[in-house]
Write a protein that binds this DNA or RNA. Structure first.
Length: 472
RNA sequence: GCGACCGUAGCUCAGUGGUAGAGCCCUCGGUUGUGGUCCGAGUUGCCGCGGGUUCGAUCCCCGUCGGUCGCCCCA
């Protein structure tokens, strides 16, 4: 061993890992999230880390960020093996899962899924290449009631606002409906997919780059591109109007429709200036759906859920409601929870119409931020409640027996490993953050004692009856 | 994938053209069965890697790899 060159360990960027004390909080978070999801009746599923590349690629896009799996000795000419890829999200695997197990599921199918996903991106603050997402989705056959679109953010609000350490974080769920923007563009006669994509991208960046810059980027694109149709000359005015309306965050359905004190706000402004929107089905649907969802969420605290028409989301499969969630004081950190409604995600895998709506907590992004800012309630380096002191080798059996008694009563008990000085054993408990140290009798006929590390007090105790009681 | 900046102890960082330091952490000690504080002592580095300039490079130059940030995209 010695003399050999050692491989100096270093972290792989974008693949986070934690020390035990942080991992303990992470587990606490995951448990908490799971409990809330289950309290709404969502059941758990887990899908493999890999899918066939064709399954993942069925929805197009994202191609270059997908990690492909291959054996070191794989023969590139061998076409017999299906190409496998690490899943990029949990929505596509869900679609495959539902299609595959269609006959074994009860609909509406409500499931949660908390797994790692992989994306070959450039790591940055809050952006990882391997990270955990906590998804909930509801999928139904043919038709999915709109109530579910409102239930998603309500559940998420309940989860996020009650995570240990999140109590004082100001977060905001922003909701929109893609049909509104699509309908508007449709009414304007904008059909070119490239242009639509471009407008969506600019709108999505509205908060970061501002209205003028967003409009400039769109018009630059229009100027450069050679469209077969000629768009009207006041295109910039029309798009500018939409960007204006999309620049506000509407606290409730009423504001969304009639507008705020600001000029050029509210959907009413759009319909007033564009009477033809009244005949656009898509626009009307979007408007109805979004106002309905906002109405359903009116019981949540002010400003925690807002309508924001600039939210459109990158993923192509969303067709209606879309969600995004940010830290109010640092929206640039990125969304910590996003999702939306999709009409028929599974159509590539089954000849049925399976609409769904879902939302995903960017667990790693959220957790990493709280960790970075020292806001996690990090306490113990050990799950043990009690450290069992080992008085001497002769008394090891007694200590073990005492530990067993306490474990049977539900406590986590770690045995100290050697009959060292009690000072060393207590110090060990202190360093690991174990709250109680148990002293079995050092001599026959003496009592058991427990020391509380927090207060420093030590008392006689009976392993068959002792309780954490008021402490904790 | 593109651009900018940066690589010195486990961590946070000083430093100089003559082969390196601080703080934290860690280990040991300050006597008998009791931690935290305090005091004392100690360990730790191919100064990312390869090449070049130079009598001599951790320092200057080139390359490379890695990291951070921005763009793209997104949880």
């Amino acid at each position: 061993m010695s003399g050999d060159k050692i491989y100096k360990p270093k972290p792989v960027s974008g693949f986070p890992e934690w020390l035990p004390e942080v991992r303990l909080v992470e587990q606490q978070w995951l448990d908490h999230i799971r409990r809330v999801f289950e309290s709404y009746g969502f059941c758990s599923i887990e899908t493999p880390s890999v899918e066939e590349l064709d399954v993942i690629a069925a929805k197009g896009e994202v191609d270059k960020e997908i990690y492909v799996l291959e054996r070191l000795h794989a023969d590139p000419a061998d076409k017999k093996e299906a190409r496998l890829a690490l899943h990029f999200d949990q929505t596509v695997p869900l679609a495959r899962y539902v299609a595959q197990h269609f006959n074994g599921l009860v609909f509406p199918f409500k499931r949660y899924q908390m797994q790692r996903v992989w994306r070959g991106e450039r790591p940055q603050a809050g952006r990882f290449r391997e990270f955990t997402q906590c998804d909930i989705d509801v999928i139904n056959v043919d038709n999915l009631p709109l109530h579910f679109d409102a239930e998603m953010p309500a559940i998420i609000w309940e989860v996020l606002s009650s995570l240990p350490g999140m109590e004082n974080e100001k977060i905001q769920l922003r909701i929109s409906n893609r049909k509104i923007m699509y309908g508007y563009l449709q009414a304007l006669g904008i059909n070119a997919p490239d242009l639509i994509t471009n407008i969506i991208r600019a709108a999505d960046k509205l908060e970061k780059i501002g209205r003028e810059e967003a409009l400039r980027q769109i018009m630059d694109y229009v100027k450069d591109a050679k469209f077969e149709v000629t768009y009207h000359t006041d295109l910039n005015k029309q798009i500018g109007l939409f960007l204006a309306v999309a620049s506000y965050r509407y606290k409730n359905a009423m504001e969304l429709v009639v507008g705020t004190d600001e000029p050029l706000s509210g959907l009413g402004t759009l319909t007033k200036l564009h009477p033809e929107l009244k005949n656009n089905e898509l626009f009307k649907q979007g408007m109805t759906e979004l106002t309905f969802v906002m109405d359903q969420l009116s019981h949540l605290p002010q400003n925690t859920v807002v309508a924001d028409l600039s939210i459109v989301r990158g993923l192509d499969y969303y067709t209606g409601t879309v969600y995004e969630t940010v830290f109010v004081d640092d929206p640039g950190y990125g969304s910590i929870c996003s999702g939306g409604r999709y009409d028929d995600l599974a159509s590539s895998y089954i000849n049925k119409k399976l609409p769904g709506v879902g939302i995903s907590i960017g667990f790693s992004r959220l957790f990493a931020r709280l960790h970075e800012q020292g806001k996690l309630p990090v306490k113990s380096k050990s799950p043990a409640d009690i450290l069992m002191v080992l008085p001497s080798e002769e008394r090891r059996a007694l200590a073990a027996q005492t530990a067993a008694t306490l474990r049977k009563r539900g406590f986590n008990v770690e045995m100290y490993h050697a009959p060292k000085k009690t000072g060393d054993q207590i110090k060990f408990a202190d360093r690991k953050g174990i709250p109680y140290v148990w002293f079995p009798p050092f001599e026959d006929g003496k009592d058991h004692e427990v020391k509380c590390m927090g207060s420093g007090t030590q008392q006689k105790a009976d392993p068959a009856e002792w309780n954490l009681d008021e402490k904790k």
